[in-house]
Each structure stands twice: as structure tokens, then as C-alpha cells.
Design a protein around this nucleic acid. Structure first.
Length: 580
DNA sequence: GCCGTTTTCGGCCCGACTGTTTTCAGTCG
């Protein structure tokens, strides 16, 4: 069983226990464990073998022994007994908006409802309105919730889809009267790779007006909920958005609250309690009455004795302890990126010429650009034969002369790691290139040993500088190859090969958990956008978001380095005495 | 079920919104 499968079991247990009416803190404990395991960034199997399960936060004696049973037998007796007690179909019912564990349990015990279909039927037949606290409007709401659940299928959408929509909403709100300031909040501001909904935080005097105007925007399909300080809507394209409006003098605490994560906020509120204060989105409440207002986030953190914590770190994954010790990591930023190591042109499957790509990179202030078109076996992407690769080198030279010294063009390739593990160009061809990125695009579903061996082979080839999108995962829709990521990281650390954080929002590979593990181990990384057109350069910020969420400092990212340091690294095997 | 510069037992955040109620429970983030 892999991490995700184990996490799913604990999430299921949490749902079932909740319906059963088990005490909430037990339920929370299972959820916490599921979340930690899901974000572990290293294989649970490895920790299990080393008898280190208890080092995972939120994993104590009971959960550790359940993990042990799962990894040994692939099953969990506790979960099976629970599933016999509480119908697992109710888990779907829980996903309906407005239905929580209490109602789900009532539906089941009073009406025998055990599936989403049962619930729909009962609501249509008007059987729910007799229950305590429920009337005809509740039935309507539940039917709408079921419809919406089916339409949305998956709850979260990729950040690449949500962010542009969010920015356009933000621009609309900025134009509204009495608005001082608008910021993205929630998981978008934290740069999570998927987001549940778009959260926007507004500082304005006239909250009622902002809420009214927002609810009336043409993009809004329907209003899900509306109050004095917030409004929640579903947009025409199915995305959901939530807007909070607070007066400017409370903006800091409100932004902090709306940014989350929930787990981070819980920790902060505990810290506030230790200081005899109560923290909410409105600010701090003092015990005898009286308030402390915070117009900036810095002020919120300062009152808790902490430096400001970057939103990307706010997940309760050690950032609060690090802040208390004054040891928050220095994080790589978009401005740190000096060059791009992964760009395609019309020579393979890019949409623009080398010169167009170069000029676009220059206009963004980049100092170097590697042209890395696909290699010969990747026919679908018009991969370059050795002959075309040679001719391309001449064009790169020509373009370099035309554009001048402002941008250094480097000759590269994205060489295919073939299914048998061999690289798609012979070593003497690779040796003549400045930067070699080796990637897998085919046979990603090979057995773990095989696909890991392919990557290890590429890393050990002294001509290879970067491993491109190492696991082959796609944010929406494709699982990563089953690579032994620990082994890959160890080997990359050993050889000085950089692992790519592919910044394209469809990929984001390495993901944040693997990026964090890589940074912990001191592996070199490269934040590359894999550009196929000039506009793709704009997407680099998504890769930076992943890196920051992975606590990656700028020094480990090779394309933050100036060109002379980069070149010294590229020459690392060519110095005599090394690796002979 | 987890966890400990208050504790190995007794805690474990805080408020808005909804729908149904005359004061609140449930849900959500």
C-alpha cells in the first residue's frame, strides 16, 4: 500500500466514526494522521521498515499499529468492523453540502438511508421534512447539493485553472466603491496545487454594498450563502468563490484568518490562549473585554511573539515551531530565477522560433535560456534526429549573435529516457551539449524497480545535468510513476544532478512533498517551466509556489545561479580526477 | 486518538450562516 491508500483508509475511518457519533477529537486524530501521511514526501514503507512511524506528527501508538497492520496484510480489521457497523455509502451522503455527521446518522437510523440515491429519493418524496429541525427548504437545499455534487465530481480544481479566474474577480472588486484593498486568500494564496474554492478578502467601509455588487456580477451563477460580512457563490464555470469584507482596521487579522490553513489557524489560536487572548478574524479579544485590532498580518504574528510567516508555509508542518525559534527558512522567490533550463521551439513541439523564445525570456529579465527540444524517439513531439540537432546548434549560434549579450543561449536537449533505460542520444552527442535534461514520457506504468532503475541510470550518466518532471505525474488525471523517490533523491544528491520542479500548472512535478524532502536532503533543484510558447514563461510562478511550499531555499535551485556558477556546475564531471 | 517550557490526564479554536426555531443545533471554513 502506498501513502495515499493508507491515508484514504484513515479518512474513511474518520468519516465512519463521525457518523457513528464517536467523540470529535478521536475523529480529528484520524483526519490529522491521514493528512500528515498524505503529505509525507517519503514512502511510508521506508519509515515502517525503519520502525519510525511514530516520528510522523499525529501518529501515536494506536495509529502506528494500524499502519503496521495495513502494510503487513493490506487490510485493517478495525476498518472492516466499522464498515460493517456503519454503511460506507453514507460517506457520499456526507459530501452533500449542508449534511454533516449528525444529519447523515439521523437519515440512516430514522429512514434507512444508506446511499446518495436513497437520500435523493427521500428528499423528492418529502420524507425528510418531518425530521427535527428540517423543513421543505432543507429538502430543496439537499437536492441542490446532490445535483451540485454530481456536477462537480471532484471537489478541487487545479490552481492553474482557478488562479486566472480569481485574479479577474479580484480586478472586478478593486473597482467597486469604498474598497481599499483586495487580496487572494485561502489555498490560492498559499499556492496549493489544487483549490476547493476561490477566497477573496476585501477591506472596505461599505460591506453590504460590496457583497451586493459581487453577488450581482455576470460571472456569478447562483448565490450559495450571503450574510453581513461574507458571500459565497457558484460561478458560471462551476468554480466557487467566497468573499469576506472587513473594515480596513481589521484587515490583518481577517486576511490571516481567511488565508488559513485551518490547522495553522488552530495553532495560532492556541498560542493566543496561552497569552490569555482570544484570536478570531476580527482581532484579539482581551479577557476583561476590549480588543486589539490588527490592520496587518505582521501585527497578528507579532502579538503572538512570531515573525510573519509566509502563506506558503502555513500548514502546521513545523512552521510555527520554526518561527518560534527564529528559524523560518529563506524561501526561493520568482525574482531569484536567473534563467530557464527547459524550453522548446518549433524544432520539436514548441509553438515559436528560437529567436521568439529568446526575446520573450529577455523581456522578462532572464540572463540565460536553454533550448531543450525533444530527442529523436519522441516522434509525436517531432523529436530531433542527431542531424537536426547539429543544424539547430547553428541556428542557436545565429540567434545568439542577433540578440546580443543580454541573454545567454545554451544548447540543450530534453533527451528521452527510453523504456529500456537507454538515453535517446549516444554519449558523444550528449557531451557536446551545454545542458542535458533527461525525462520520461513513455512507459510510465512500468514496475517500480524498472522505472526507478531507468531514472537511476540517467542520473548516473555524467552527461545528464537535470532530470525533467521526475515522476511524470499530472495534477489532474495522471498518477506519478511508481518511482522509489528516496533512492532517486539519494543518487541525485550524490552525483549533483538537479531534479526539476516542473512549473507548468498541469504538472507541478516534483510536487511539494517531494520538493521538501529533496531540500531536506540537500539535493539540487531546477525550477523550469517547460516552455512551449513565450506566454508559458509567465507560469514560472507556479513552480516557485511548489518550491516555497517545499521550504526550498534559493541556494539549492541551480537556475537562481549566475551563469558562471551554472557553467562551473555543468562542468563538474569534466574536471580531471572526478569519477574516473 | 494524540500530546506535554502549565499536564502522562485532561485538555484539544472561533465565529458566521442557515433553517428552523423563539434560543438553538448543525454545518462550514
Amino acid at each position: 500500500m502506498n501513502n495515499r491508500e493508507v491515508a484514504a483508509v484513515f479518512d474513511l475511518i474518520a468519516d465512519l466514526l463521525e457518523i457513528k457519533g464517536e467523540q470529535v477529537y478521536k475523529v480529528l486524530a484520524y483526519r490529522r494522521a491521514a493528512q500528515e501521511i498524505g503529505n509525507l514526501g517519503r514512502s511510508l514503507q521506508t519509515l515502517w521498515e525503519a520502525d519510525e512511524l511514530r516520528t510522523i506528527p499525529g501518529v501515536g501508538e494506536a495509529i502506528a499499529s494500524k499502519i503496521d497492520e495495513l502494510l503487513r496484510t493490506g487490510k485493517l480489521e478495525f476498518a472492516e468492523k466499522l464498515a460493517a457497523e456503519v454503511p460506507p455509502g453514507l460517506v457520499e451522503v456526507l459530501k452533500v453540502e449542508g449534511v454533516g455527521p449528525r444529519k447523515a446518522a439521523r437519515f440512516w437510523k430514522d429512514l434507512g438511508i444508506t446511499t446518495l440515491a436513497d437520500l435523493e429519493q427521500a428528499a423528492r418524496a418529502g420524507k425528510l421534512r418531518g425530521m427535527p429541525g428540517m423543513g421543505a427548504r432543507s429538502e430543496e437545499r439537499i437536492l441542490k447539493g446532490i445535483e451540485s455534487l454530481r456536477r462537480r465530481q471532484v471537489g478541487r480544481v487545479s490552481i492553474g485553472r482557478a488562479r486566472p479566474v480569481a485574479l479577474s474577480l479580484l480586478a472586478e472588486i478593486e473597482r467597486m466603491p469604498s474598497v481599499h484593498r483586495v487580496e487572494l486568500a485561502g489555498s490560492l494564496r498559499r499556492w496549493r496545487e489544487t483549490v476547493g474554492d476561490i477566497d477573496l478578502l476585501v477591506a472596505a467601509e461599505d460591506a453590504a454594498q460590496v457583497i451586493r455588487l459581487f453577488a450581482g456580477l455576470p460571472q456569478v451563477d447562483r448565490v450559495l450563502g450571503q450574510g453581513d460580512t461574507k458571500v459565497s457563490v457558484e460561478l458560471q464555470d462551476g468554480l466557487r468563490a467566497q468573499v469576506w469584507v472587513h473594515p480596513p482596521e481589521r484587515f490583518g487579522s481577517a486576511l490571516q484568518y481567511a488565508t488559513g490553513s485551518q490547522a495553522h489557524n488552530v495553532r495560532l489560536r492556541e498560542l493566543a490562549q496561552q497569552r490569555g487572548l482570544s484570536l478570531s478574524e476580527h482581532g484579539f479579544k482581551k479577557p476583561g473585554g476590549g480588543e486589539i485590532l490588527c490592520d496587518s498580518e505582521e501585527e497578528v504574528y507579532r502579538r503572538l511573539g512570531l515573525p510573519w510567516v509566509p502563506p506558503e508555509l502555513r500548514e502546521d508542518r513545523g512552521e510555527i515551531q520554526a518561527a518560534q525559534r527564529g528559524q523560518l527558512p529563506e524561501l526561493v522567490g520568482l525574482d531569484d530565477l536567473a534563467g530557464e533550463l527547459h524550453a522548446h521551439s518549433t524544432w520539436s513541439d514548441g509553438q515559436n522560433s528560437i529567436e521568439e523564445m529568446a526575446r520573450a525570456a529577455m523581456s522578462l529579465g532572464l540572463r540565460y535560456l536553454v533550448i531543450s527540444d525533444h530527442s529523436q524517439s519522441l516522434g509525436v513531439a517531432n523529436g530531433l534526429s542527431i542531424e537536426r540537432l547539429r543544424r539547430q546548434a547553428k541556428e542557436i549560434e545565429t540567434v545568439q549573435r542577433r540578440i546580443g549579450a543580454g541573454l545567454r543561449l545554451l544548447r540543450g536537449t530534453e533527451v528521452e529516457i527510453r523504456a529500456d533505460g537507454a538515453l535517446d542520444y549516444p554519449d558523444d552527442v550528449l557531451r557536446q551539449l551545454d545542458v542535458v535534461t533527461a525525462s520520461m514520457h513513455t512507459s510510465l506504468r512500468q514496475a517500480p524497480e524498472k522505472v526507478t532503475a531507468r531514472l537511476l541510470g540517467a542520473i548516473r550518466n555524467p552527461n545528464v545535468d537535470v532530470i525533467g518532471h521526475p515522476t511524470g505525474r499530472m495534477v489532474e488525471g495522471r498518477e506519478p510513476a511508481e518511482v522509489d523517490i528516496e533512492a532517486i533523491l539519494r543518487e541525485a544528491r550524490q552525483t549533483g544532478v538537479a531534479l526539476e520542479i516542473n512549473a507548468h500548472p498541469a504538472r507541478l512535478d516534483l510536487d511539494e512533498a517531494n520538493a521538501r524532502r529533496a531540500a531536506e536532503m540537500g539535493c539540487l533543484l531546477a525550477i523550469n517551466v517547460d516552455a512551449h510558447s513565450p506566454s508559458d514563461f509567465e507560469l514560472r510562478e507556479y513552480g516557485v509556489g511548489v518550491a516555497r511550499r517545499g521550504w526550498v531555499p534559493p541556494g539549492l535551485v541551480v537556475n537562481t545561479w549566475p551563469v558562471d556558477r551554472l557553467e562551473a556546475w555543468l562542468q563538474r564531471w569534466k574536471q580531471p580526477g572526478i569519477r574516473d
